[in-house]
């Protein structure tokens, strides 16, 4: 295969918004092409010299990022219309997507914009609090080992625990919107994760009660977009199915025993 000719200049069309309630607008920036650039390194180059294609002096683009190696979950944005991490969005691949066109960067649409490409994902962390996302240990004193676990059990928990709360699954979910109360795939995954631990299971009933509330597991439309966009291949649809089963069993038990 002959490698496609690389452009000398890469063009970024970036959706900007100066404050929470401000009107968004677009700006176009150009960055000289080099091999092995990612979106972050281009945003860094723009920050150093924030002049638009029209030659107008602008301000550095604001975006959220931390580790730059796709493990912290901070730098999610919508790139060429698809939600993903901007650190692992390689320019060479993006250019293949757009041909000779522009690479577009937009903030996620399911969370309130703070500024430019930075959105407020506090809702995801609030959900972890609401669903008691922890193992209720007795304290930090020396009380010996934790429960033994088979490699198979560990594997499922490990896969679920790689969720970095980036929000890609929620951006892609037709059920999850800016102003409804749907909980979303990542939290379903976390509920299953904690329910799968021998001590974590102590809080299972409380978690499942919460899953039965409005916005809970029953609202999942099973579109399965979440699992397709997850950058860490978290088995979200398996988790949703498990969470659904656990909730059904829980509600039947509750119906017959009257106990919560």
């Amino acid at each position: 295969m002959i490698a496609p000719k690389k452009p000398e200049i890469i063009t970024f069309r970036i959706k900007r918004q100066d404050a929470r309630d401000a009107q968004p607008y677009w700006e176009v920036f150009e960055v000289p092409y080099k091999p092995n650039l990612n979106v972050i390194s281009c945003l860094q180059l723009i920050a150093e010299n924030p002049v638009t294609r029209e030659g107008r002096q602008s301000r550095p683009v604001v975006w959220d990022c931390s580790c730059l190696e796709e493990v912290c979950g901070a730098c999610t944005m919508v790139i060429n219309g698809r939600v993903r991490q901007s650190c692992s969005a390689l320019v060479d691949q993006l250019l293949e997507e757009v041909g000779e066109g522009e690479i577009t960067l937009e903030p996620m649409t399911k969370f309130p914009v703070v500024r430019d490409l930075w959105v407020d994902r506090q809702r995801m962390f609030d959900n972890l609090l609401r669903f008691k996302g922890w193992v209720p240990i007795d304290g930090t004193h020396d009380l010996g080992e934790g429960p033994k676990e088979s490699p198979e059990e560990q594997e499922l928990r490990y896969e679920l625990s790689r969720c970095m709360t980036c929000g890609c699954c929620l951006e892609a979910c037709p059920q999850f919107t800016l102003d409804n109360d749907f909980i979303g795939a990542n939290t379903f995954g976390q509920v299953v994760y904690f329910n799968a631990h021998k001590t974590g299971r102590v809080l299972m009933n409380e978690r499942l009660d919460a899953l039965m509330e409005p916005g809970g597991i029953a609202d999942c439309g099973n579109a399965q977009n979440c699992v397709k966009v997850c950058p860490k291949d978290v088995p979200l649809t398996i988790a949703i199915a498990k969470a659904g089963r656990q909730t059904t069993v829980h509600s039947i038990k509750r119906f017959f025993t009257g106990k919560r």
Partner: peptide, 19 residues
């Protein structure tokens, strides 16, 4: 002791066949 504590907190440490 710290490993034990992390284990109790639910860290999915890799396991051998015997767990």
């Amino acid at each position: 002791r710290i490993i034990d504590l992390l284990d109790r907190m639910g860290v999915p440490f890799n396991r051998t066949h015997e767990g």
